[in-house]
Design a protein around this nucleic acid. Sequence first.
RNA 1: GGUCCUUUGGCCGAGUGGCUAGGCAAAGCUCUGCAAAAGCUUCUACAGCGGUUCGAAUCCGCUAGGGACCUCCA
Length: 496
Amino acid sequence: MALKIYNSYSRTKEDFIPITAGHVGMYVCGPTVSGESHLGHARPYITFDVVYRYLTHLKLKVRYVRNITDAGHFEEEGREAEDKVSKKAQLEKLEPMELVQKYTNLFHWAMLQFNCVEPSIEPTATGHIVEQIGMIEEIIRAGYAYEVNGSVYFDVKKYAASHDYGKLSGRIIDDLLETTRELDGQEEKRDRADFALWKAAPAEHIMRWKSPWGEGFPGWHIECSAMATKYLGKEFDIHGGGMDLQFPHHESEIAQSTICNHVSPVKYWMHNNMITINGRKMGKSYNNVIKLTELFSGNHPLLSQAFHPMTIRFFILQSHYRSTLDFSNDALIASEKAFKRLWEAYEVLKKLSPEGRPASADTEAESKIRGWLGELESFMDDDFSTPKVLANLFEIAPLINSLKDGILPADAISSETLLNLKEQFRVYLEEIFGLCNPDGSNNERLQSVMQLLIDIRKEAKANKDFVTSDKIRNQLTAMGIMLKDEKDGTTSWGLA
RNA sequence: GGUCCUUUGGCCGAGUGGCUAGGCAAAGCUCUGCAAAAGCUUCUACAGCGGUUCGAAUCCGCUAGGGACCUCCA
């Protein structure tokens, strides 16, 4: 296999060799469904969707697990603390599952908009309390966790004495142990660096489960360890997520799983970089998020218009997943135009016929196209360099348009290369990048109506009745429909 | 404070030692009844300083700016 993946654990690009030949186990940290997803959240889901699609394209059988974090200390966005609700009538209370359902539905809707493939398994934290408790008991038995007042903490100091705690996130254990911070539960912990496996629920806490240590709820890190182990085994190939999860989330996952399963759980750690806005990370605590619903509707002070989910997807694929990507309205507008141009070239390409083209061609266009197409796989193999693939497809676009307009003669490329070109565009744009037609104009009746208007306009033009022909064109433009007069005298249309 | 990353043309964004990525914007031309679209052409950048090298955006050092993580965080 030629695929190389940058492994955050080793900080190098490594050859990708699945643990079990032909199969890949991939776990990606999913959303916490206590609020609406924003643009930053879209990045890992789109990035790992493309990873999943590419691995599948390489004929690997992938089990893709992406969890839903629906346990923890939840409050609905915008609402005040819900501690007092217990005094109210049943229907006025915030039912945790109601909140979880609402944002889970919204998340699924967004994934559908982005044309993300559904994961093979989408486990919820609340559905795996038993497994999490089992794992915590195992860690206690092994002597790496202790109970205090109904809460259980992982003993980082003890773990670090014999294991590499901090390797993934490049942390120095002594610094961690010295860090001064006043955190919740700090006084219960033996050491500052320890983290919670189980938290005793205060009386007013509405999400709670019975456990050997009393009523409470699981710590954040244990859910991923439990679910990944259950569905992917003690050792699996790829674990993905945002860079900000490296510490403490993923570092702790390694520690928990290593104690329980006696093996480091993940072979390749992949981390996508952050989306920034004015150079700063987009995040709830910075108060600078743009929600996906706001992007899709254009309803945000920083946005001049609505943006199609495919524009966002394209925008994300235009940069490498390990680089920061700076958001701005202008950048999205540029992506929208670029995507439109590329997609229209693809539509033109679909209509080009191999008929009347030679079996072989010794032309500049032929060799250029072959060269550009030939590089695509090596770009993807090099740690998923989607921007390079797009650059090559953009190089080809003018040649496609020139073939359509006859600027390049029909015999400039061979029938074989044309067929290959069609196939490669389909494979990369649709299959691997998961892009799809942004304008949904495939309505038969609309097609007929448009054809009628185009015919009337053509007649008017033939009669030099430009008042009528311009009226048709201008009105359509005002409606967001653009007419294009082709070189061969026909007229095509598309959404502006 | 600690650890790490980053600085590319008007904007976005690839790129890790030699061969002007790409996109958007802008200008000119071709085509067109006029447009739009499309095609062609132009716009040769790598924070600053020093070093290594035949050769550096790319390696090393220093300086300056920006950022991330160290706390919930995609």
